[in-house]
Design a protein around this nucleic acid. Structure first.
Lengths: 229, 229
DNA sequence: GGAATAGTGTCTATGAGACACTATAAC
DNA sequence: GTTATAGTGTCTCATAGACACTATTCC
């Protein structure tokens, strides 16, 4: 029995949600699109393997990203090579340029999640991706994880775009602004501003110390438009 | 490399949160207390193994319980026998009598979670239990999972006790009552009542079709007693 | 009637959601 | 001054939380 890690690496780029995909260089599924990942070595745990594969296949440094275990996939027939159990990880990244270095990094690319069709991914990676997306969407509600999609300093508009793009909704800019600046230790004002090519400069913030978001950002309200009368 | 499942089976009994533990009959950790579990067979996935081990070791039927994958534990040194990866599952059960049948069932027993000391569990099972508890506590907030601790029909007081015991707080009976009966499809009145030995009979409900709880039952408010002024 | 538990109503404070205009900067 | 984006205030409604008494049943 073998153990692998598979990585769902998400980012927001050009107002669309993207996932990092590679083109497989080896059988099975050679030439097919897949999540980055690889075998866990005998002396490492899956966390270490996830960090290593992230660096090897994509050039990203997982220590600077949000990286968490998602769940494991154990169906005996999920890999034609035999029994291969995969521990999936979810990583959230700001819109970083992909370093071209590294052995396999040339094949890594950001792909808009919405552009993927049903059979586009190898193995059971479509399912893993779906689980990762659902985890990310859910955690935006109750945690401060949205900042993991942002660079070290960011504007409130950028943060709002994260919510809008990941959830596929549009949010009222005024209510959002009020909510995030009032939330406990979610944002810390840096006192600096970003001067854009055009338009009024925006105040820059960095992530505060909070990990849970209170009060939560309830996506559910959109799903339950009328609460009951 | 081997694959095992470990089960965190929780219930509420006598107003205390209990976890199902076994006494190990084999090395390593023979005679020591541990979570129930065992090796995944070559033709089954971990979900099937979790169901099978639950039946074998505890006599419980996982199909009638809430059973979900928790996460995996992959540290190379977590089992003295060598590399053993464990997929942990979380199960929530009503206060069932433990069937005494089955090969190992005689050693399974409910143990109050609060009575466990730091070194009481074999392997890394203390960590797995802690992760399972945190998952259960978190999911009570945003899902209708509390009903998984209740029998098929239950009273609102029983449901409130679940929250109180799992979270270790006390909740206002009036506010709780209003909240759960107003929540979308959380409870369905059966029209029947339970007549206790003493006291006024209580209306019986069964779980509604909702899986998410909206509005959520915010535990966070207790952790943030003063929201900001 | 006593004991035990179930069930309910109101008030206040806070957050959610709807909604439109002003501020700042580059050109 | 035109263009583009940032930033803000108010009103209404819903929910949270505090709080005490009545209802039902068994004995």
């Amino acid at each position: 029995m073998s153990l692998t890690v598979d990585l769902v690496v998400l980012t927001v780029r050009d107002d669309r949600l993207h996932v990092l995909l590679i083109e497989r260089g080896k059988e099975p599924f050679r030439g097919k699109t897949a999540l980055p990942g690889g075998f866990v070595r005998s002396r490492e745990d899956s966390d270490a393997a996830a960090l290593r594969e992230l660096a090897e296949e994509t050039g990203l440094d997982g220590r600077t990203l949000h990286l968490e275990q998602l769940r494991s996939y154990t169906r005996p027939d999920r890999d034609p090579r035999g029994r291969v159990v995969s521990v999936a990880y979810l990583a959230l990244a700001p819109d970083l340029p992909l370093p071209v270095a590294g052995t396999d990094a040339r094949r890594a690319r950001w792909t808009p999640v919405a552009d993927l069709g049903p059979g586009d991914l190898a193995f059971d990676h479509a399912r893993i991706l779906a689980d990762g997306l659902e985890r990310a969407r859910a955690k935006l509600e109750y945690t401060t994880l949205a900042t993991a999609f942002c660079p070290p300093t960011f504007t409130i508009t950028e943060l709002r775009r994260v919510y809008e793009v990941v959830w596929g909704v549009s949010l009222d800019a005024r209510n959002f602004h009020r909510k995030v600046v009032n939330a406990d230790d979610f944002l810390v004002a840096t006192g600096t501003r970003r001067v854009p090519d055009v338009g009024r400069p925006a105040a820059l913030y960095r992530a505060g110390g909070a990990t849970v978001l209170y009060p939560p950002m309830l996506r559910a309200a959109a799903q339950h438009p009328v609460a009951r009368t």
